[in-house]
């Protein structure tokens, strides 16, 4: 299996699918001649030409709406948000049109659209360029929302996203574009709605998605080393649809759960996770489910402040210890 970066995996999936399917095209700010702000689409304009790799003006609402129109006529546009933070300007189109038009047209149209870009923080972009969007978009029926973390999942889920006849919000871990992993060859997609057990364990479930999965894996190592605790790490990876079964099964086994999210505490995916667990695995729980979330502040700039604004190893490890009624460290 070849090793590639998160960035290469994304590009590979899009380029391979563009080779296979002429209805796939790319749109976004500086994705063509410039090669993409994060170099995800570098070189693709030379390969596929400007009709299929469209550099847009800075107008998220306008070009996202145009992409929806294209999708309604059968094209499969992949729209890049330079950062998901800019998608607030396009959110009216994503939510009010893409998510709903199939329903309010009585099923007469499909919107095979992918909107993708870096989500979350970790690279000192400060308040207006740092947001985690999973709970916002995950709220709306009609959308599918995914947040892969490994290069293999990025490729496989992008293939699935492009082939899905519905609008897909594809949240990339922007801070991880340079990380490497093994990526299978071939055109196999990774299905939505299936969580990944990133590490098996027996004592506590650490449930997360995106960049925080890597944090949870580090914490699991640490718990094993420092406390002799066997933590299971669940990578939710698909926010809508959400794989409730894998979460519930894990908790039935471990009887304890910590839900970790980079975003703010209230109304987030971690809250949803805790809610599902109490509804479906209440009798299996040996301790309350704990959420670990970002600090209730706009994302700060300074490195140390930004690190402090997001969940860290110690917080997650201590949350796990609390569920085990062990002393915090």
């Amino acid at each position: 299996m070849p090793e590639m970066t998160y960035r290469q995996a994304l590009k590979t999936a899009m380029a391979e699918e563009m080779e296979r399917d002429e209805s796939v095209l790319l749109m976004g700010e500086d994705i063509g001649v410039y090669g993409g702000t994060h170099l995800i689409t570098d070189g693709l304009i030379d390969r596929f030409g400007p009709k299929r790799v469209i550099d847009t003006p800075i107008a998220e609402g306008g070009f996202t709406g145009a992409a929806i129109g294209m999708a309604m006529l059968g094209l499969k546009p992949i729209v890049e948000m330079m950062t998901w933070s800019f998608s607030f300007l396009a959110s009216d189109q994503i939510i009010q049109t893409a998510a709903k038009v199939r329903y309010f047209s009585g099923g007469q149209v499909e919107v095979p659209l992918v909107v993708r870009g870096p989500n979350g923080g970790g690279v000192q972009l400060s308040a207006q360029h740092t947001h985690s969007m999973e709970n916002l978009y995950g709220h709306f029926p009609g959308l599918k929302v995914v947040s892969p973390v490994t290069p293999a999942d990025v490729k496989g889920m992008m293939l699935t996203a492009i082939r899905d006849p519905n609008p897909v919000v594809f949240l990339e871990a922007g801070a991880l574009y340079g990380t490497k992993g093994e990526v299978p060859d071939g055109d196999g997609g990774v299905p939505f709605g299936k969580a990944r057990v990133a590490r098996e364990g027996t004592d506590v479930s650490l449930i997360s998605y995106g960049r925080q999965v890597n944090l949870c894996l580090r914490v699991a190592d640490r718990l094993e080393e420092e406390d002799g605790v066997s933590a299971e790490v669940i990578d939710v990876r698909s926010i809508r649809p959400l794989d409730e079964d894998t979460i519930v099964e894990s908790v039935k086994k471990t009887h304890r759960a910590v839900a970790v999210q980079e975003q703010w505490r209230l109304f987030g995916v971690a809250s949803e996770t805790a809610s599902i667990i109490q509804e479906k695995a209440f009798d299996y729980l040996d301790a309350p489910v704990i959420r670990v979330s970002g600090a209730e502040v706009p994302a700060p700039y300074a490195r140390n402040l930004e690190v402090a604004a997001f969940p860290n190893e110690q917080q997650v490890a201590n949350a796990a210890r609390r569920t085990l009624y062990m002393e915090e460290k």
Partner: peptide
Amino acid sequence: GHIPLGVGMAYAL
């Protein structure tokens, strides 16, 4: 909100 949709549809055609 529908104006960009019309423009995108025209591109698709």
